[in-house]
Amino acid sequence: MLIKTVDLWKTYTVGTETIHAVQGVSVEIEKGEYVAIMGPSGSGKSTLMNLIGCLDSPTRGEYHLNGRRVSAMSDDELAYIRNKEIGFVFQTFNLLPRASALHNVELPLIYNGTSSGERIRKAKEALKTVDLEDRMTHRPNELSGGQRQRVALARALVNNPALILADEPTGNLDTATGAEIMELFGRLHREGNTIIIVTHERDIAIYADRIFYLRDGKVEKEEDVRHIKNSGN
């Protein structure tokens, strides 16, 4: 079992109001799965993503990632887990604007003490995986949206994480480019990567094998969509 959450809660206090963003979510995801988390805005999917991505700690409940109980970890321990186990892909790419594609991809390796030579080797390899080896020295503003997202994907892959976590990865791309990126996710999945995509679009969610529908902080239903893909949609 790669991911196991047990009755996960996240509660915020805004002024005098208490918001239960995630209310008792229990999910299990196996290694090598391709899962989508879907829901309208305000459904708590971002909060759930932050919890699964170890950017945030739950108020209550347990979260096990790759055999480790991460729900009770300190900030620095979470940072270590993020570095080692999780590759993030964001809607807005979140690349360092003044750094080259290569340097952007190298970044996670800096924080686990990989030597400079090894970093460059691994970063080049990751850029090759996303077919961007000829754009290594370009800065993000010299790249198209699709290329930027591929750099972000290379960055997510470079540390060989247990999980790739994508938050609306096609949200800032046109339909054709979005489809390209989703094809790339599909390929990475076939190569053995575990992928979780958070989205509000069903068109995107059905690229996954399984969809969790989230509403008001709870998993409303769970759907296996492999048959749709296999039928050639």
Binding site: G53, L55, D75, D76, A79, Y80, R82, N83, K84, F88, N94, L95, L96, L107, P108, Y111, N112, R155, N159
Partner: peptide
């Protein structure tokens, strides 16, 4: 701020 957020998401610890 955003750069710091990115770095933290990618595994930078406080002391980094």
């Amino acid at each position: 701020t955003r750069e710091i957020g990115i770095r933290k998401a990618l595994g930078a610890k406080r002391r980094n």
